[in-house]
Design a protein around this nucleic acid. Structure first.
Lengths: 341, 341
DNA sequence: GTTAGCACTCCGAGTTTGTGAGTGCTAACT
DNA sequence: AGTTAGCACTCACAAACTCGGAGTGCTAAC
């Protein structure tokens, strides 16, 4: 569709705009280009590129700015090979020594690192809990009126749930814990239902009244378990996007991140480990239509996907950020595949 | 020092400035005041008040703005009786039905409510953990390589600590848990030391090698326990303070809240259940010298203090906010004193 | 002690002006 | 046919200017 020279010019314009944030004029390109081309010629090409929708002018007699379509072409065809500098590589790779800490903490660390390295806003999701099978379980007495239920899934996620539950001792709770565990171990969390729990009554007939009391509480609590855990960091970096100099817009974005339900939308359609890029209006969330979002998924124990999104200005350094995100994703996949544990 | 009329005028000026945010002129006060006083007279009084340091002019020929000293006088002597509207009262009182949920969750809910009611930034601290005595403890196997240590304090705080610990079964962990608990129950968390833990070796001679492995890990983990838990909400409301239209300042504040060590400074010197007010430069943290901070402490189980701070513009509605904060504090104290459990 | 009156100050909003970067178009050149 | 020099034109942005209004301090009279 576009000839080589047009592509070159488009790339130069976008590179320059990403760098400066100012509309790019024909003279700038003429001087930068190694084609030995005059500004007049560049102007002609620019007019064509604008007609095709890759560029636009904020006003007559201003230089050009890439449109969303222009960025799209840029990220798909005009990015140089992804490369990641060795400092970043070493930093990210340091996640590997985290065999000692929990999976959730690894993700937190990864999000923190990505925020540092990109200077942008980073969001991650951790694979679901409800569909996992139960591996361990304990009831722990906290006070006369409260008991803590600890659930451990096969993917090492731990959930603490506080239950209102009085008049029992830790010894009885231990017995109930063990019974519960032997009944439920291997079920998926979402499959745990009253029927299964009720079986307890027969195993532990001497505590029937306790069990009667516990069952409905347990059922309600299990229903309320959050499906996915999210981590967010660097929201304040939104402030450095010039489009958000208006503080009302910034507040909207903040509100957006406070309500974690929106992350479902953010990670919608991310179904493999590829790098997904959404530019401006391509984002479903219209609060983000001045942003670009780079998303990918890491593989958790070969069968589930955790997700990572980096949110920044449309003028972000796509090449650098994609490479860092990709490297982080691969590292996480490696860690969770167990190779390095 | 100041006569009644001067106080009245100062109050009118500050009320007006809090309302409008614009320098207040003599004519405005002359019209508002029920004293039947001309603007010229007000001007004379204003000149006096300025000389005494309670007011200042942003420039000649502008109206007056209260100085930090003026605000100080205002909050100490000129506030009407604190009153709280019944909707707020009901909302806050609804925290009482939270006997079912954990203390930490109650605080979170309270912080959320305060953010809603004040429209400002709210920070809270929850009483220390290290100085509490240990009430319960469990080791739970998460995977082949990881064990979760659950600690429960006498004030119902629960800590999860993941330990790298391989090659053992839940049965052995249960035995160790029980031994550990009987050894440590009643110690304060910070008093748990290697000597005490080592006693295990003699109780559980058959698992000597396991214990040898566990002790140093446990010791290191206990050292790293966070003293105090903090909750923050509504940081985005900082954006609506006009002094923070400069986005660089906002970033600084955000950075401030990311590093929770600063909360220690914030809650420094708050040692009883009174209402503390810091205005502008009175704040130790110079990032907050355009803000006012209202702080108080709720009583936790009669012997410890949790703390609450509301951070907003110097132009905040002191009366309303103080009353809401005070009512929340009292409600939390009631809840944790156990009266309503 | 209070107030009317007045000269004075100064901000801020609106207008004017000038400049520079950029454009599109045309005509000449290769 | 593609490229380029040249030129008239456009427009945003910044600096300079103008002007009205809100507010002041001071003085003199009440």
């Amino acid at each position: 569709m576009l000839n080589t020279r047009q592509l070159q010019i488009l790339k130069l314009i976008i590179d320059d705009f990403i760098d400066s944030g100012l509309p790019v004029g024909s003279r700038t390109i003429s001087k930068k280009s190694s084609l030995g081309i005059s500004s007049a010629t560049v102007r002609n090409e620019m007019a064509d590129l604008e007609e095709l929708g890759y560029l636009y002018q904020p006003h007559t007699s201003a230089g050009r700015i890439p449109s969303d379509l222009g960025y799209r072409l840029y990220v798909e065809n005009l990015l140089d090979d992804r490369l990641i500098n060795s400092e970043s590589r070493i930093l990210i790779r340091s996640l590997l020594v985290s065999g000692k800490i929990s999976a959730g903490e690894v993700i937190e660390k990864a999000v923190h690192l990505l925020t540092q390295l990109t200077g942008l806003t980073v969001v991650s999701s951790f694979p679901g809990f409800r569909k996992r099978t139960l591996n361990n379980l304990k009831l722990i007495k906290i006070s006369d009126a409260k008991v803590l239920l600890i659930l451990v899934s096969d993917n090492e996620i731990v959930k603490n749930i506080t239950l209102p539950f009085s008049g029992t001792s830790q010894d009885i709770l231990d017995l109930i814990s063990n019974s519960l565990l032997s009944t439920l171990k291997g079920s998926t969390i979402e499959d745990i239902d009253v029927k299964k729990i009720s079986r307890l009554k027969y195993d532990l007939r001497q505590f029937e009244s306790v069990i009667d009391y516990l069952v409905p509480i347990l059922r309600d609590s299990l229903k309320n378990i959050e499906e996915i855990e999210y981590h967010v960091e660097g929201v304040e970096n939104i402030l450095s996007i010039p489009e958000f100099s208006d503080s009302e817009k910034v507040r909207k974005i903040y509100k957006l991140f406070e309500d974690k339900t929106i992350f479902k939308v953010l990670f919608n359609n991310i179904e493999d480990e590829g790098i997904y890029i959404k530019i401006g209006d391509e984002n479903e969330l219209l609060e983000l239509n001045e942003c670009s979002v780079i998303t990918t998924a890491y593989r958790y124990k070969n069968n589930e996907l955790g997700k990572i999104a980096v949110i920044g200005s449309k003028r972000m350094d796509y090449r650098g950020i994609i490479s860092v995100v990709e490297y982080t994703k691969n590292t996480l996949t490696d860690i969770f595949s167990g190779i390095y544990l």
